[in-house]
C-alpha cells in the first residue's frame, strides 16, 4: 500500500496543483466564491426571519442560535472544502472507473480526496466566520481557558463528525449507485440539523440524527458549555466535553464502513 509517511506531502502537492488550475480563471472563481458565500447565508436568513417573529426558539435566543449556526457552518464549510467532491465518486462506481483507484499504490479514499479540490468553497467558510463573529459580539461569554479550549477543539471535532457522516453514508453507492442522494439527508441534513438547538426536534429524529449520527456533538453540546447554559433536555454535563472523543470514534467507524464498501465493490460489467 505504499508508504503512508509521504501522504501529507503528496496531499499538499496534489491539492496545490488543483488550486493553481482554478486560479487561472479569476473572474469565474470570484463569482462562484461569492455565490457559495451567499448560499451559506440562506439558512441564516431563515433564522433572522424566525427571530423577527419570536424572541426565543426552544429557549434559545437569537445570538445563541447564531453560535450554533456559526460553529456548524464553519465546520461544514471546511468539510465541504476537503471532501465535498466525494459526492462525485459514485460516478466512478457506476462507470467502473473505481478499478483504477484500486490498482494504484495509495488508499482509495486518499485518491478521491486529492482527485478534486474546489477552492471556491472557502466562500462558505467566510459565511460561517461572519455569523460566528456576530454571535460573539452579541453574547457576553465569560471567557476562560476551558471555554477557549472547548471552542478551539469544537471546530476540528465538528469537521471530523461531518466528514465521518459524509464518508459513511456515501458508501450507499457501493450497493446502489443511483441511491447516492440518500446520503444528502445525513451530510447536508446533518449540517441543517446542527445549526438549530436539538431540543426542538421530535424525539426519534433526535435519537437518529443527533445521537446515532452524532450531530448533537457538532455544536449543541460545545455551545451549552461555552454559554454555561442549562441543557433544555437535562442531559449530563460531561457530554459537553465529549465532542473530540466522539469525532475520533466517528472517523474510525467511517473508515471501517468505507473499507466494507470497497470490499463489496464490483466493477461495471461488459
Amino acid at each position: 500500500m505504499g508508504d503512508v509517511r509521504d501522504l501529507p506531502e503528496l496531499y499538499v502537492r496534489l491539492v496545490a496543483a488543483r488550486i493553481r488550475a482554478q486560479l487561472q480563471y479569476r473572474a469565474s472563481f470570484a463569482m462562484e466564491t461569492f455565490g457559495t458565500l451567499l448560499v451559506s447565508f440562506i439558512d441564516f436568513v431563515a433564522i433572522l426571519v424566525i427571530f423577527a417573529n419570536v424572541p426565543q426558539l426552544g429557549s434559545w435566543s437569537m445570538p445563541e442560535v447564531a453560535l450554533l449556526y456559526g460553529i456548524s457552518g464553519l465546520a461544514f464549510a471546511i468539510t465541504d472544502l476537503i471532501l465535498g467532491h466525494l459526492d462525485d465518486f459514485p460516478r466512478l462506481v457506476r462507470d467502473g472507473n473505481f478499478d483504477l483507484l484500486l490498482v494504484r499504490p495509495r488508499g482509495t479514499l486518499f485518491q478521491i480526496l486529492t482527485g478534486d479540490f474546489q477552492l471556491r468553497r472557502l466562500g462558505k467558510a467566510t459565511g460561517g466566520l461572519i455569523v460566528l463573529a456576530y454571535a460573539f459580539s452579541q453574547l457576553n461569554v465569560a471567557w476562560d481557558p476551558g471555554r477557549v479550549i472547548v471552542l478551539v477543539l469544537a471546530i476540528p471535532a465538528a469537521t471530523a463528525i461531518f466528514a465521518s457522516v459524509w464518508i459513511a453514508t456515501i458508501c450507499v453507492a457501493f450497493w446502489a449507485v443511483e441511491g447516492r442522494e440518500a446520503s444528502n439527508a445525513f451530510s447536508y441534513g446533518g449540517q441543517f440539523l446542527a445549526q438549530f438547538p436539538i431540543n426542538i426536534y421530535d424525539t426519534w429524529l433526535r435519537r437518529f440524527l443527533a445521537y446515532l449520527f452524532p450531530v448533537a456533538f457538532v455544536a449543541y453540546f460545545p455551545a451549552l458549555y461555552i454559554l454555561a447554559k442549562p441543557d433544555p433536555l437535562g442531559l449530563p454535563d460531561w457530554l459537553r466535553f465529549m465532542s473530540p472523543l466522539v469525532a475520533a470514534l466517528a472517523l474510525v467507524v467511517a473508515g471501517r464502513v468505507w473499507a466494507i464498501g470497497v470490499r463489496h465493490y464490483q466493477s461495471a460489467g461488459g
Binding site: R180, A185, D202, L205
Partner: peptide, 22 residues
C-alpha cells in the same frame, strides 16, 4: 432512475421532519 427517486424522496422526507420541528 427509480432508485435515485427513492433516495431523493428519503432525503426530502428527512428535511421535512427537521423543517417541521423548527
Amino acid at each position: 432512475y427509480p432508485i435515485a427517486s427513492a433516495a431523493g424522496i428519503f432525503t426530502n422526507v428527512v428535511f421535512g421532519l427537521m423543517r417541521g420541528s423548527i
